[in-house]
Design a protein around this nucleic acid. Structure first.
Ligand SMILES: [Mn+2]
Ligand SMILES: [Mn+2]
Ligand SMILES: [Mn+2]
Ligand SMILES: [Mn+2]
Lengths: 232, 232
DNA sequence: GGCCGAAATTAGGCATGCCTAAATCATACA
DNA sequence: TGTATGATTTAGGCATGCCTAATTTCGGCC
């Protein structure tokens, strides 16, 4: 039973969680402003208000950035759980395409009750990931960890499996699906081709060119590591 | 594609629709304030803002009340359609009890997209009523009319069928379900018993006492009139 | 150590939508 | 034809959360 939040507050907390990365580093006002599509001045205002609350969702040092408190992390994970459960539900039960679910979930995540969250999870059989491969936090805030790496950072010639893809660009998602770039697909980056595009063998297909832009939305793990729905 | 609205505006429009009744009479500020649980001064403020918009959702005469414009009626019906589809979906697909669906729908009705509305309707096979018997407006704003009457007004000894029940009081709903007072159930009011309680034969049961309060939430139609899921 | 540019904050405003307290209006009835 | 009473509106405020413009701070570089 965390304190009462608004849609705006929830979105700030989730943004801080997602921008601070696995090491929970400080997040800058500018980064938040870009992610949330508001002006930096608005971010400062919100962070000040959040920081002076008692108890507070954030630790904020003027001019140095913000990070989540335990309470803030708890709430951010709860909203993220809502988001990802809703995406899987829309996709699996209501026939939404994987490029359509994000926008809808971005709103609904703030307005479903705990009861509805639980019924959705039960209906789906307590899924572990959303349609883009992102891990759904447990109800108690636990997150199954996984050391995934951006495809652009992955070494050549080492077999990898797609673990997740960014869900924020519908066009990119449609293009990925067309090329077979979905979670679980295996791939290998061909050596010496890391300029404007990557030469990649996707699954069992012949090697294809993959733009850096598209590649930037893809995260991978080592071939054997993926638990569950591997396909490559 | 009606103009952009907020949750508050949607709730005002829906309240005006529901309080103005089949004859679309003017609704008073006080009635709205009571229904929406805000102060009358707040209602006045909102009605003034709505009335001076161009195009406007309402026709408002200072000191005399408000009614919906065509645009306002269109929007109110759309929100009502959302509400009732969501209630049926939560009940039929996600195992919500009939006394749990209203509160959830009251929030979600404002936040589902047209796409989600359509998918829910399709998944349900385009249902005609919500779990409380209320008719779901069509997507184009058409409403199947039905001349239902409050049970308290129904003549004695004339066979009736429950057409709908009020969904706003969870306790009353649980009590109704326990007594078999659900849409489709037939009943007859016994003569000469219209004081603090009604003596009523519900379905095939022995006659029971029914408090005026519970009866006030029940609407009925003539025995043969109900289309569809009659049970009485 | 001082300067410069980028990042961040402060200052001042606006829109929404709620509140309480103080007028004012409509109207029933004496 | 007043008048009182309840309904309604006006006046003034507050919280949230966004904006632009102006100012301050940070940090790297000469
Ligand atoms: Mn959101
Ligand atoms: Mn996702
Ligand atoms: Mn509502
Ligand atoms: Mn209902």
């Amino acid at each position: 039973m965390t304190a009462k939040t608004t849609e705006a507050v929830d979105d700030y907390l989730k943004a801080i969680l997602e921008l601070s990365g696995p090491a929970a580093e400080r997040v800058t006002s500018n980064a938040l402003a870009a992610h949330l599509d508001v002006r930096p001045a608005s971010v400062t205002g919100m962070l000040q208000k959040l920081a002076e609350q008692q108890p507070s969702f954030v630790k904020y040092e003027k001019h140095y950035g913000v990070r989540l408190s335990e309470l803030g992390k708890r709430r951010a994970l709860e909203v993220q759980r809502h988001h990802r459960l809703i995406e899987r539900f829309l996709h699996d039960v209501l026939d939404f395409a994987w490029d359509e679910v994000h926008e809808e979930a971005e709103r609904l995540e703030h307005y479903i009750s705990e009861r509805l969250e639980d019924r959705i999870a039960a209906k789906l059989g307590f899924p572990e990931t959303d349609p883009h491969g992102h891990i759904i936090p447990e109800k108690d805030g636990e997150v199954a960890e996984r050391k995934e790496i951006a495809l652009s950072q992955w070494p050549c010639a080492v077999p990898a499996v797609i673990s997740s893809v960014s869900d924020r660009d519908p066009n990119a998602l449609r293009e990925m699906k067309r090329m077979g770039l979905v979670p679980g697909t295996g791939l290998i980056v061909k050596p010496g081709t890391r300029y404007a595009s990557l030469l990649v063998r996707i699954g069992a297909q012949a090697p294809t060119r993959l733009s850096r832009e598209l590649a930037s939305g893809i995260k991978v793990v080592e071939r054997r590591t993926l638990t569950g729905n591997a396909r490559g």
